[in-house]
Amino acid sequence: MPTDEDELRDLMKAGLDGDAAAHRSLLERLSRHLRAYYKSRLSRIGRSASEAEDLVQEALIAIHTRRHTYDPAEPFTPWAYAIARYKLIDHLRRTKAARADVPLEAAGEITAHEDHVDTESAIDLARLMARLPAKMRNAIQHVKLDGLSVAEAARRSGMSESAVKVSVHRGLKALSAVIGREKAS
């Protein structure tokens, strides 16, 4: 019987090769694990489910935009867990929580539980998008939200295809930076 690790790793590898269905399936499965992980950590310091959902989404953006840092020769779960944990610690620091109150257990833990309840997060994509430079905003709008092909998006915006790809990637990273900055303020 294939384990969670094997399945997730195969999905990840397929996603790295450009398989969108595998990538979607990976993110869906990870989101359930991440939700259970963040809810259990945050509930102990009296934080809400919506705050956990913010973190789920931040971790998904991080996993997506940093997926080139996964080394396929290594196990997948510890990589995903390290990102989840990093985003949790960063969140606690930015929101001035006492880190000592939140247990930060070892790897393996992250795939132990699942939570399917998709609540609304406080992240307002439309408002955050408005804060991005126009080039990045348009690239994300075309390629990621309207579902245009990169070639079509390039034609409409008068940019080269590689410039569109770079703008999408930088835009997603910039979105996650904006989310982080908003917390601190």
């Binding site: 990538h23 979607r24 998904l60 994509l125 390629v143 939200l145 579902g147 997603l172």
Partner: peptide, 8 residues
């Protein structure tokens, strides 16, 4: 997730 898995 819809957004992230569009045009991978």
């Amino acid at each position: 997730i819809d957004m992230l898995s569009a045009n991978v």
